[in-house]
């Protein structure tokens, strides 16, 4: 697209108003469901289970009417990181121990062995990262910043009784979320403005000091703008009578409908299924066929 389009490429974080059934759920349900499913994916390491999890996430994306190409763009940004992780994993996986445990060796060169178990763990890791990124894309596609802050605040409100600053925390969260795209846009504008004066960002030449120096024309104005914005925001909020969370009423009252309970139950059930499912025998069969 363009050498400056940093924030265009990031689909992670774009809200898509598609009006799907998932968009209409209670925001707390949307957030909680994603957290529960994500948690389950994070805990499990079995290849087959993670594959099922990935399918589930893709199904949810389809249900939310998020175009697949759009969702995958977020994954594409992850590819370099994934590559590094894969390489490290391949090098430092305890292949020898896996061999002792009965995994066949796929490739051997001198002291260096690659075990089937190692490769399977690697693929599983990839699946997990892709599934998690897609799940996050799903969340930001079906819930905008306001939804998320309602969700966080609604979920934390019961804790307010024991002195937990739920409202303040939610506010910090929403301001950070709201500012992120603004700062990204500001950054893009600054990059273009400095490039128009001859700055050269694309090429990483020079020693570390020079490289850091090259970011000054961006970082200095960006900080100044961010601080000014924060100050303006604080003044604007006080001018409109904001004085903290105490005694504040809400325009949007969250109320759980039947569909919300149903969706939450389904999400929890699926997460439990992902947690309990044991497809280890499939993995063993895979080893045997490889060996």
């Amino acid at each position: 697209m363009s050498e400056f389009g940093a924030w265009h490429i990031l689909t992670l974080g774009h809200y898509l108003p598609m009006g799907s059934p998932l968009h209409r759920l209670d925001p707390r349900v949307r957030l909680l469901s994603v957290l529960v499913l994500g948690g389950a994916l994070m805990v499990r390491g079995q290849l087959a289970v993670l594959f099922l999890g990935l399918l589930l996430v893709l199904l949810l994306l389809a249900l939310a009417r998020v175009p697949l190409g759009h969702a995958l763009r977020g994954v594409r940004a992850l590819v370099p990181l994934l590559g590094v992780v894969l390489l490290l994993q391949l090098l430092f996986y305890p292949h020898r121990r896996a061999l002792v445990a009965g995994s066949p060796a796929l490739w051997q060169a001198g002291r260096f062995v690659v075990s089937a178990a190692g490769v399977v763990a690697l693929v599983a890791l990839c699946l997990r990262m892709v599934a998690l990124v897609l799940l996050l894309t799903l969340l930001t596609s079906i819930a905008d910043a306001t939804d998320l802050v309602h969700a966080v605040e609604g979920l934390l409100r019961p804790l307010q009784g024991i002195g937990f600053p739920a409202h303040e925390l939610a506010l910090v969260f929403v301001i950070a979320l709201r500012f992120l795209p603004l700062l990204a846009r500001e950054m893009e504008r600054l990059m273009k403005a400095q490039a128009a004066r001859g700055a050269d960002f694309g090429h990483g030449r020079g020693y570390i000091v020079q490289r850091v120096r090259r970011t000054f024309p961006l970082l200095v104005p960006l900080f100044v703008l961010a601080l000014r914005r924060a100050e303006e925001l604080a003044v604007a909020m006080e001018a409109r009578g904001y004085a903290g969370g105490k005694g504040r009423s809400y325009l949007v009252r969250l109320r759980m409908r039947h569909a919300d309970w149903l969706a939450l139950a389904a999400a929890v059930a699926l997460a439990v299924l992902l947690l309990w499912l044991d497809l280890g025998s499939l993995e063993q069969a895979l080893f045997r066929s490889l060996g």
């Binding site: 600054l190 403005a193 400095q194 128009a196 004066r197 001859g198 024309p217 104005p221």
Partner: peptide, 26 residues
């Protein structure tokens, strides 16, 4: 030479002449 909208936001050097010199030095 392109001058963006509200270009006063893009200054970053501490002294005026340094900022003006940025382009030619680049």
């Amino acid at each position: 030479g392109l001058l963006f909208q509200s270009p006063e936001d893009q200054l970053f050097e501490r002294y005026v002449a340094d900022d003006v010199a940025y382009g030619p030095l680049q």
